[in-house]
Design a protein around this nucleic acid. Structure first.
Length: 266
DNA sequence: AGCCAGGCTGACG
DNA sequence: CGTCAGCATGGC
């Protein structure tokens, strides 16, 4: 598991929603610069793609778990992205009770409407808009994009961050404290906070529990209860790299490696 | 047509 | 503290 799979990591694993594939390359904007990534040149985004870390430690830590071993062997190219924190805040507020294709659509509408425009290889790309830019937008514009009841959540949180709430400060806090701080943002509950922490703040122990993960935790590990309770149990079970494991299990479950009775499909 | 989606908020106990 | 109804939208 030493080679990143760009399609899996940037698109299919649903941790990021703005990358687009055009004849074999993946186009997106990171830190205000447009990129066309391929397996050959992706080292230029080594930190973003977490390429410095050898993921074979996952098999050492979790390989004794059948579902984990299956997921590692089936999808060895998944990496956890080091995304901009603000981008994960917006993306996962929009993810609440929503499906991946529609989250992708909403994120791309936000970038096209408020982000800076770039062009690379004749393809138009849009950067992620700043908190200030979204804070100055009218909430009715968000509603018109199809955000539904998430529109006022995003609007209020953008204003709070533009007004001085520091996302950067969260990265140096312990997991529990950063989590508690994130819960003060409108539209951010336990699950969304865990996604922000895992994908946008580097907390590898953070274990987001969505409907897919809740099902697999019950079916594969016998853990039931509220999402908060399951998340706490999972962090105790899986430890400091549980979030990375979660991403593999999440993808395996979404790809149908579970039958109608909840049994792991080999 | 009807169920579902990387859940959250506010009310209530 | 935990539970739970209500919720906008559109993919499938």
């Amino acid at each position: 598991m030493n080679t990143v799979d760009l399609k899996l990591t940037l698109v299919e694993s649903a941790q990021c929603f703005h990358w687009k594939e055009h004849n074999g390359a993946f186009y997106g904007v990171v830190n205000g610069k447009p990129y066309a990534l391929t397996q050959e040149n992706c080292g230029i985004l080594s930190d973003y793609l977490d390429l410095e870390r050898d993921y074979s430690f996952l098999m050492d830590e979790y390989g004794h778990i059948p579902a984990a071993r299956m997921a590692f062997e089936r999808f060895p190219g998944i990496r956890i992205l080091n995304q901009d924190t603000w981008e994960t805040v917006v993306s996962f507020i929009l993810s609440a009770n929503n499906n991946v294709s529609r989250i992708r659509s909403l994120v791309n509408k936000v970038c096209a409407a408020y982000g800076d425009e770039y062009e690379l290889d004749g393809i138009k790309l849009y950067g992620f808009p700043t908190p200030e830019r979204l804070a100055s937008a009218d909430v009715s514009e968000f509603g018109a994009m199809g955000m539904g009841y998430r529109a006022p959540y995003l609007s209020e949180t953008a204003r709070k961050i533009a007004d001085g709430f520091s996302l950067d400060a969260l990265g140096t806090m312990p997991y529990e404290e950063a989590h508690k701080q994130l819960l003060t943002l409108k539209g951010v509950g336990d699950k969304v906070a865990d996604c922000i922490q895992l994908f946008g703040l580097g907390f590898d122990e953070s274990f987001p529990v969505d409907v897919w993960v809740a099902r697999l935790m019950e079916n594969w590990f016998g853990v039931t209860g509220s999402a908060k309770k399951v998340g706490t149990a999972a962090r105790a079970m899986f430890g400091k790299h549980g979030g990375i494991l979660q991403q593999y299990l999440f993808h395996a479950a979404r790809m149908g490696l579970i039958d109608e009775n909840g049994i792991l499909r080999q």
